[in-house]
């Protein structure tokens, strides 16, 4: 594989005696969208803050293109565009002046580039209005615009779809995927919208109590198991339960006329046929694809429930 763009090397963060981040190590590669997942308070935002240099790490190091964020901050950070938590911009200035503000802080951002980015995030009609008149979604777009202004190779987005309507979420998602695929950007996304992460990310790192519980590629992460859960809507249900038990299918739970069964994909038509032969009315078969959310809960705390 290619050289990683970001390397976390045994990063540790302590607040007083409390260790918030315990020896966090992972690499991020160009062209991938890396999802950062974890329950509240797990240390996601702290980690992101350390990557962008807002917080000092107690031990370890973070390298961006091989440059340490500790000793070569300016060289390292110039490759990074970021939104940390909400995109907080200067409300009393227009969107355009906000962008001019950030353009002045780096070398080589022309007026043309500003217009280009504004166009890209679809703010052209209202860019000269004050930010305080913007909706949350528009602020999110403006935040994205300021992060992209200097054409960074790494994009760090904390909750990028927060406050966007479904169309906006879809747009941002497609846009992030395009940046990664076409321009080879490495994107780090953290989000509490797990289903969103599933659609957006290539790899997902799960962090819990300041430790990386696992890094999975989305495909393997979600579809790891051959068996899936199938929901059958049946009548009469009791007769169906007897039949299902006889053939040794694993019943997960029964809910009214719904029966949840864990089985292999290939076994679905066979079971359906058997049910129909027994004069059981089959109203619906629904394959419950195991979502990232289920897996996530399983990995982070599912054990407690079982």
């Amino acid at each position: 594989m290619t050289q990683p763009v970001i390397q976390l090397q045994k990063v540790k963060k302590k607040f007083g005696n409390k260790t918030i981040i315990k020896e966090l190590s992972f690499d991020i590669f160009p062209g991938e969208v890396f999802g950062f997942l974890g329950p509240n308070g797990a240390g996601k935002t702290t980690t992101i803050r350390m990557i962008v240099g807002l917080m000092n790490m107690t031990e370890g190091d973070i390298l961006i293109f091989g440059q340490s964020i500790k000793s070569h901050y300016k060289e390292a950070i110039k490759h990074v565009g970021a939104i940390v938590e909400n995109p907080e911009l200067y409300k009393h200035l227009s969107g355009y002046r906000n962008l001019i503000h950030y353009a002045r802080m780096v070398r080589g951002v022309t007026k043309k580039r500003i217009d280009e980015v504004v166009d890209l995030v679809g703010l052209t009609p209202r860019i000269h209005e004050k930010v305080k008149t913007y909706s949350l979604g528009m602020r999110q777009r403006l935040g994205l615009a300021q992060a992209l202004l200097h054409s960074p190779q790494i994009l760090i987005l904390d909750e990028p779809t927060n406050g966007l309507d479904p169309a906006g979420i879809r747009e941002i998602r497609q846009y992030i995927r395009r940046l990664a695929a076409e321009e080879g950007l490495a994107v780090i996304v953290s989000s509490h919208l797990l289903s969103e992460m599933e659609l957006m990310c290539d790899r997902i790192g799960i962090i819990q109590n300041g430790q990386l519980v696992g890094v999975h590629s989305v495909g393997e992460f979600v579809g790891e198991e051959a068996e899936i859960i199938v929901r059958l809507t049946l009548d009469p249900i009791d007769q169906a339960v007897q039949l299902v038990k006889r053939y040794d299918y694993k019943i997960i739970k029964k809910e009214g006329h719904d029966l949840f069964i864990r089985m292999e994909n290939e076994a679905i038509p066979i079971l359906a046929e058997r049910l129909i032969q027994q004069q059981i009315k089959l109203y619906g078969i629904h394959a419950e694809a195991k979502s990232l959310e289920d897996r996530f809960l399983e990995v982070t705390g599912g054990q407690d429930i079982v």
Binding site: L54, Y73, V84, N86, Y90, M105
Partner: peptide, 14 residues
Amino acid sequence: GSGTIKLLLTRPVS
């Protein structure tokens, strides 16, 4: 107070 410090400090300026 406004949180803009985060965007201000994540630039290649010390």
